Each structure stands twice: as C-alpha cells, then as structure tokens.
Simulated assay, not measured.
Amino acid sequence: MMPLDDRDAPLLTLLRVGRIFAPAPLEATEVLIADGRIAALGRDLAVPEGWPVRLVEARDLTAVPAFIDQHVHVTGGGGEGGCGTRCPEITAHEIASMGIGTVVGVLGTDGISRSPANLLAKVRGLRAEGICAYMYTGSYRVPPPTLTGDVQRDLAWIPEVIGLGEIAISDHRSSQPRQDEIERLVSEVRVGAMLAGKRGICHFHVGDGKRGLEPLRRLLTETEIPAEQVIPTHVNRHRDLLEEAADYALAFSASVDVTAFEDPGEEGLSGFDAVSRLLARGVPVEHITMSSDCNGSLPEFDAQGHYIGMRVARNTALIADWQRLVREEVLPLEQALGLISGNVAQVLGLDGQKGRLAAGFDADVTLLDGDLQPQQTFVSGKRVHARDDSP
C-alpha cells in the first residue's frame, strides 16, 4: 500500500479501529472507504499493492456512525433583545469536534435580518468545508419566508431543503397560526416533498404556552397527515410538556425531539432527564431524538413577556447528555446511538444513506475513545476533525 496523508485526496481510506458499532456491535475492526462511501467492513481487508490509500491506525478507538444534529442555528439565532443580541454563526470546527457529521440549519425568531437565502449560503459554505449540511425553509413565521416564493418549489428545486421549520406554536413569539393555517402548511410540504422524493418533515418549535402540543394532536386526529410528517422539538422545556409529549408519542406512534439544554432552569429538564423520563413512560427509543439548538438564543423573559437577558446555546450539552445516558446505563451504546444518529436519519428521510455503518452508506464515521469523547470525525470519507493527539 502507498500511505497518504490528509493533504492528499486518496482513492481509498482504510480505518483500523478497536471496535465497530454500526450501531449494533460488529466483529469487524476495519472500514474501507471508497469515493466517499463505505466499500466494506471486515478484518484484514486487502487493498491491491500500489493502490493509493490513506491508512488510519486507531486501534484504541471505537467507530460509530457520525452524529446528526437536526436543529442548528448555523447562521446564529437571537435578536429578541435588539440587533445587539444576535447570536454568532457556528463554524465547521465547532460541529465536527463534537463528532457531528450532518446538520440541518434552521431560522428561528429572526426571519428579517436573516433569511432563507442567508441560511442556504451558510449551508453551502459548511458543505465546502466538509460538513454535510441541509436546511429547513421558513422560520417561526406563518406564512413562512421562502427561497422561491413557495414552500413546494423550495422543496422541489433546492436540493439542500429537506423540510419546513422551525414553525413556532404555543409561544408568545409565534405568529399565532390558526389550525387551518397549520394544516395547509403541512399539506403543502407533504405534496412538495413527494414531488421531490424527500421526506419533507415539518419541524415545530413548541413554546411554553398553555396549548402545548394541541395543534399537532388536532392535525393528526382531524386530517390524513401521517405522524412521520411532523416533529415537535423542545418538548422538555417544562415537565408538563414532556408528559404531554410522551402521551403524544404513544398515541400516534410519533417521534419527539428533545433539546439538550445547557441550563434547563427550574421548569425544564436536561436532555438526559428528558430521555430517561420518556423511556420510563414507555416511549420506544426509536421514537426519540436529541438535538442541540446550538447557536440559537436562550432568551429570558419576565412574567409579562418582557425581554430581560440572553445566552447562546452550544452543542456541547448534546454530547454530554448523550454520554451520560450510556455511562449511567440508561441505554446501551447501540441504542443510544440512535438518539443522535440512526433515529434522526429515519426522521429526516436520510436513512438510506446515513445513520449506519454499512456497505454503500455514506462514509460518515466518528471515532470515540474509551470515555465516549469524539477523537476523529469523517464525513463522506474525508477527515474533517482530529484531536491533536489523534493519529
């Protein structure tokens, strides 16, 4: 073999690791990557003499599917306290250093100074830096801002657009959409996604308002829309909402998304506590996902809804909560991986290419040490992050 370093663009990459969870544990200890995809998994894989190959020796590390974060304010969130409270953009390094290979960019409260076009530019910039990035068209607002003037056209003609979001409900910052407006939006997304061959999910921001998940319960009860079409997020912002989310997931066999809050406050629950409670309520692990909401704003309001302060979310809590679920044996590693990998790929309609380590799948691989800390991250076979002491 002709070893190459990261400055080259090899035809092949061979990862030699200690263990592989794909997410189920495998006997294999090697991953052969060709043209950005996994070509084979096995032991003592042979490469013809003279073929250009990058050899990565990481026998003390465990290979897992690279993580997927379905809710990232890649252009920064915020603005609820004026222009001086706009949050910063996220960098490719901040994403990859947490073992995350794929992100979905989202606009939030601010759909004025930030736009879908701005979001698309950032998504394409991240792709140029090696991160697999997608986006939701729209923002909190109803009717939503779009790239082409129409939600269905965005889905049909913009490859990076995989759904609509984050539409705000049960929140004083939302557009207070009527039930018929919600139903019309979700229906448009469904048809547009069908024409584009996409899942086309509607990603709903759920605030702490008294209506909770009622608009989504009505949507699934009163229309023919399938539950897989809508994903409520931030369902752990307070305990009553989480209990409602458990009932919702069980009643409709629906998925719910937990936010890994750095500081959930007195009313909220951490990602660890929220997943633990959902599992205790009998929600199947396959119907639970976790996301970071990173670089979004964490505004504080008083009882009258007046802005009083702001913090910026990070993605470190996502990995920390996930690690704790494994370390405290709430879930075995192979099931916990679904929360930030396979389950998310299923929700987004990317499960034919991501969320597993298998021949033909995208070569998105994260290498973990014994403490479950990401040491190296590969996206489409390219190493986009390695800690200083990694080989």
Results as ranks from 00 to 15, higher is better:
Gly309Ile: 14
Ala280Asn: 10
Thr85Leu: 03
Pro65Thr: 00
Gly76Ser: 01
Met2Arg: 11
Met310Gly: 10
Pro23Lys: 04
Leu333Pro: 09
Asp35Phe: 11
Ser291Gly: 13
Gly381Ser: 09
Gly381Val: 09
Val384Met: 10
Pro116Glu: 04
Arg199His: 15
Glu244Asp: 14
Thr109Asn: 08
Pro332Asp: 10
Leu4Asp: 01
Ile231Ala: 01
Gly265Ile: 13
Arg217Asn: 04
Glu328Leu: 14
Gly79Ala: 02
Met194Asn: 11
Arg19Ser: 13
Ile95Tyr: 00
Leu220Ile: 09
Arg16Met: 09
Asp6Gln: 10
Val31Lys: 04
Leu61His: 04
Tyr136Pro: 04
Gly42Leu: 09
Gln335Arg: 15
Leu219Asp: 03
Ser390Asn: 01
Ile38Arg: 06
Tyr248Thr: 09
Gly138Pro: 04
Leu242Phe: 05
Gly79Ser: 01
Ser175Gly: 02
Lys354Ala: 08
Ser297Val: 12
Gly78Ala: 00
Glu334Gly: 09
Gly125Pro: 00
Trp51Pro: 00
Val31Arg: 02
Glu188Arg: 15
Ile167Cys: 01
Ala246Gly: 14
Val258Pro: 10
Ala246Pro: 06
Val106Pro: 00
Phe204Thr: 01
Val258Thr: 12
His71Cys: 01
Arg211His: 08
Leu26Thr: 11
Glu49Ile: 08
Leu216Thr: 06
Gln353Ile: 13
Tyr248Phe: 15
Leu4Glu: 07
His93Val: 09
Leu350Ile: 08
Pro232Ile: 04
Val186Asn: 12
Arg383Lys: 11
Arg19Gly: 05
Arg199Leu: 06
Ala363Ser: 08
Gln375Ser: 05
Met194Thr: 12
Arg54Val: 07
Gly149Ser: 03
Ala249Arg: 04
Arg124Glu: 13
Ala359Lys: 15
Ser174Asp: 06
Ala313Pro: 10
Val206Gly: 00
Val275Arg: 06
Glu267Ser: 11
Asp371His: 13
Val106Phe: 04
Arg239His: 08
Val347Tyr: 11
Arg153His: 08
Pro52Trp: 04
Arg19Phe: 07
Gly296His: 12
Leu367Gly: 00
Ala40Met: 06
Ile158Cys: 12
Gln376Tyr: 05
Leu15Ser: 02
Val142Lys: 03
Arg239Phe: 06
Arg190Met: 13
Gln179Arg: 09
Thr109Phe: 14
